[in-house]
Design a protein around this nucleic acid. Structure first.
Length: 582
RNA sequence: GGUCCCGUGGUGCAGUUUGGAGUGCACGCUGGCCUGUCAAGCCAGAGGUCGCGGGUUCAAAUCCCGUCGGGACCGCCA
């Protein structure tokens, strides 16, 4: 039907007759003897010169046969790939007429209400930006598959209809027709199946897996998402990091043409301590500095705490109003801080740095000098101090750091980071005294810390795990761990967590049974493809890299999902609806 | 479950603070003019449940209450 794509004709093609197909991006009429029609497909635009009798409107679908011709002098368009040439002597066939589109299908669509774009997603997808995003995503998937294949991984599909387990995220549930009253769950991840693959001798498993979690949506979270999921037998943590690094490197190279290089490592403790986050955005500094020493002997009650830390916002004083400071203080409180101390750095009578703050009068000259020295404060800076338990101080200042300094999504390059040595336990439940697992209960403790498993709460919270996260520009891309494969250690962990033998048997019995038949040591990882694609193409919202995403309330404006089903259908499944609001 | 923001011709906005006739801008659309434009230009025109419901008022896009839809975030996402 066509000989060329719209974006292809070049000066070398001048004189040849071609046929192109596409949509009318724009028409410019100059009376009965001359009109220009820009024909669009995913490769670009081609200007077709026709006479005024050709009645085509925006988004008509055409096949145009014409001669590739040099544009007259002075009419070359440098902004088009085909801008040196145009199609003349055109024969235009209308393949489909079209109603005017409900929103402009060019750059201006970025300003259009997203609901309208989603309601007509097929039109939105025609736009160059969406085409580019979809194609980048496909290139990334393809590059990842090649990289995994090259490393000896085997792609295995795992079931979508599985047994529901109470752990982790809320399951999407599917009623069973053949077993009324019983339900499948859609997978939150293929976690247990991939471990079974290791027992099954697959050795190296991977899958670009669809996962479903019935939790509230965000800019970086949809109900349904895709993960590169992988698992390796006879492999250590460093083997997994290496394998994932290669896949990510291949993905990045597929989009940017450049390699990633060695991805730096950081311990979880360093990440929290320096950046106040387990997914630090290291595109910018403004690190948290420890002021506990400075205020060790302080008379200021608010600073008599486990930890005092601060950050310094360079040169921000002039742009930071008192209203803004009050607003930040409110935010810090919402984030869990008791309060936020701010200090403006001003020039003193002798040219020295002095700190202006509502609390300055409660602090000694030595303490103020300590703040200036530790934070490297100069005239014109604003610093922020928080005192509390270490973890809370880090958390609040980490969020404040992002609020004040985080660059836009497309700036600052791609800063990958491995965060290692996560704690095995997130917390110790005060009521039960049981530790709460930070990852999942199959996570292998750090070999140096296994003795501490028999200790008290303080020891337990200090136990590191062989769990690791991959972070890019402050987004958690994914996480993984070395798994426990020996029943004795698994039993010890279950005991610690307060999971009874019966409970473990009921929830993970098939996995524990499988492990009794000879389980290889294994480790794995999973990272979110949607987030990786979004960051690689410079979008701060994963909906922009998903063909048919859902809105924040989980609806699809295009198909009107979710929707009711009729009573017969429900009856067949053994279901009856409760009245609304119960 | 919670906090905050948004909703005005097909699209994007202004108008809302301080109530006074659906007033305005840009794009798009329809028709006309136009032989080198490229977000073409010029002229004319059509197009409105101011998200929806209720309340206050002589009078509501504007104030109040509720509700629906969208977005950002907290909780949640082992």
């Amino acid at each position: 039907m066509r000989t060329h794509m719209c974006g292809e004709p070049r000066p070398a093609d001048i004189g040849t007759t071609v046929t192109v197909c596409g949509w009318v991006a724009r028409r410019r009429e100059h009376g009965e003897h001359l009109a220009f029609v820009d024909l669009r497909d995913h490769t670009g635009l081609l200007q077709c010169v026709v006479d005024g009798s050709v009645d085509v409107r925006s988004e008509y679908v055409l096949a145009v046969t014409g001669v590739v011709s040099q544009r007259p002098e002075g009419t070359v368009n440098d902004r088009l790939g085909t801008g040196q040439v145009e199609l003349t002597d055109c024969e235009v066939e209308i393949l489909s007429a079209a109603e005017p589109p409900p929103f402009p299908l060019d750059e201006r669509a970025a300003e259009v209400d997203e609901t309208i774009r989603l309601r007509h997603r097929y039109l939105d997808l025609r736009r160059a930006e969406m085409q580019s995003n979809l194609r980048s995503r496909a290139r990334i998937s393809s590059a990842i598959r090649s990289a995994m294949d090259a490393q000896g991984f085997v792609e295995v599909e795992t079931p979508m209809l599985i047994a529901s387990t109470p752990e982790g995220a809320r399951d999407f549930v599917v009623p069973s027709r053949l077993h009324p009253g019983e339900f499948y769950a859609l997978p939150q991840s293929p976690q247990l199946f991939k471990q079974l693959c290791m027992v099954g001798g697959v050795d190296r498993y991977y899958q670009i897996a669809r996962c479903m979690r019935d939790e509230d949506l965000r800019a970086d979270r949809q109900f349904e998402f895709s993960q590169l999921d992988l698992e390796m037998s006879f492999a250590s943590q460093s083997d997994v990091l290496e394998a994932v690094s290669r896949a990510v490197g291949a993905a990045v190279e597929a989009v940017t043409g450049e390699g990633v290089g060695e991805i730096p490592h950081m311990t979880w403790h360093d990440a929290m301590n320096r950046f106040g986050s387990d997914k630090p955005d290291v595109r910018f500094g403004m690190e948290l500095e420890d002021l506990s020493e400075v205020f060790a002997e302080t008379g200021f009650n608010a600073f008599k705490a486990d930890a005092v830390k601060g950050i310094c916002h360079k040169g921000a004083s002039e742009a930071t109003s008192r209203n803004r400071l009050d607003d930040l203080t409110e935010k810090a409180k919402r984030w869990g801080a008791k309060g936020l101390v701010w200090m403006r750095a001003e020039e003193g009578p002798d040219g020295e740095v002095t700190l202006n703050s509502p609390v300055a009068k409660f602090l000694s000259p030595e303490e103020l000098a300590g703040v200036i020295e530790t934070l490297g404060v100069e005239v014109g800076d604003v610093c922020y101090l928080v005192a509390d338990r270490w973890h809370r101080v880090c958390h609040v200042l980490g969020l404040l750091r992002l609020e004040l300094g985080r660059p836009p999504v497309h700036e600052g390059g791609l800063r990958f980071l491995w965060v290692l040595d996560f704690p095995l336990f997130e917390d110790v439940d005060e009521a039960t005294g049981r530790p709460v697992p930070a990852h999942h209960p199959f996570t292998m403790p750090h070999p140096e810390d296994t003795d501490m498993l028999s200790g008290g709460p303080t020891e337990l919270l200090g136990v590191r795990s062989q769990a690791y996260d991959l972070v890019l520009n402050g987004w958690e891309l994914g996480s993984g761990s070395v798994r426990i494969h020996r029943p004795e250690l698994q039993q010890q962990i279950f005991d610690l967590l307060g999971i009874s033998e019966a409970e473990a048997e009921a929830k993970f019995g098939f996995l524990l049974e499988a492990f009794r038949y000879g389980a290889p040591p294994h480790a794995g990882f999973a990272f979110g493809l949607d987030r990786l694609v979004a960051l690689l193409v410079g979008e701060d919202n994963i909906r922009e890299v998903i063909a048919y995403p859902k809105t924040q309330s989980g609806g699809d404006p295009l198909t009107s999902a979710p929707s009711p089903v009729d009573a017969e259908h429900l009856a067949e499944l053994g279901l009856r609806l409760l009245p609304r609001g119960t």
